[in-house]
């Protein structure tokens, strides 16, 4: 296992009175793809959204335990959430480009960081679009609305938008669940490329997708981490019977 980028210790999360995550401890390795699988409502998305403190937006959420990123507890009082989220990009289930041009979508992150020099912005936008493998499809219509792109293109644009902020970690919340197989394939191939430079955590309902793209897999059930290990191991000979039953489709 490579060095751990994200470490959680006894992470417990409540929505009001309801416990959504129960004492999760795990180490997510750097520059690898880690997939979270499990049936709906098992807490995998909640856990993912704890990693960039997106759950802060929900008032009733209470969290105990710690999440260390590069050894730093991100739930410390002195942590600046805005800076934290610059370091941890997020790609959502539904592609959500802004109602702006393709260029302005990607330039959004740099602009809020105070970069307004058009030359620098152009460079960042081009590099991000290339890294997200969508440059060739959009280079001739940078100033058209992003909403005119297809679903798969929009999702890759959203990935480019995330890359433009130069994060170290990219969280993906079912990034391909709304896409057709071809677009899904492109996203998966992109994930495979991106893991050379980024630590990627992906939540997916699609077990085959987890098997294809990830190096490590974590299986969640009812807010608990049931099993975490190399994807090869989990999908050929899992240690826990529950995991085996889930990945073979015998329950859930």
């Amino acid at each position: 296992m490579k060095e751990a980028k994200i470490i959680t210790r006894d992470l417990t999360l409540h929505y009001g009175q309801k416990m959504a995550l129960n004492s999760i401890s795990m180490q997510i390795p750097e520059k690898e793809v880690t997939a979270f699988i499990g049936p709906s409502g098992c807490g995998k998305s909640t856990f993912l959204r704890s990693l960039n403190r997106m759950n802060d937006l929900i008032p009733s959420v209470k969290i105990t335990g710690e999440i260390l990123i590069d050894g730093l507890n991100i739930y410390q009082k002195k942590i600046d959430v805005v800076n934290l989220r610059k370091k941890i990009g997020m790609v959502f289930q539904k592609s959500n480009p802004f109602a702006k041009s393709i260029f302005e979508n990607v330039a959004y992150g740099p602009r809020i960081n105070g970069i307004n020099n058009l030359k620098i912005l152009t460079e960042i936008v081009e590099r991000s679009l290339k890294n997200a493998a969508i440059w060739d499809e959009v280079k001739d219509r940078m100033h058209d609305s992003a909403l005119g792109l297809s679903g798969g293109q929009q999702q890759r644009l959203c990935i480019a938008r995330t890359l433009a902020v130069e994060p170290e970690i990219i969280l993906m919340d079912e990034p391909a669940s709304a896409l057709d197989p071809i677009s899904t394939g492109k996203i998966e191939e992109l994930i495979f490329e991106l893991k050379k430079s980024y630590t990627i955590v992906i939540v997916t309902h699609n077990m085959q997708q987890a098997a294809r793209v990830s190096d490590y897999t974590a299986f969640f059930y009812l807010g608990e981490l049931i099993e975490f290990g190399k994807t090869r191991k989990i999908f050929t000979a899992p240690d826990v019977k529950h995991t085996e039953e889930y990945i073979t489709g015998r329950f859930g």
Partner: peptide
């Protein structure tokens, strides 16, 4: 085995 399990 790996290819079967991971790539269908």
């Amino acid at each position: 085995q790996t290819i079967f399990a991971l790539t269908q």
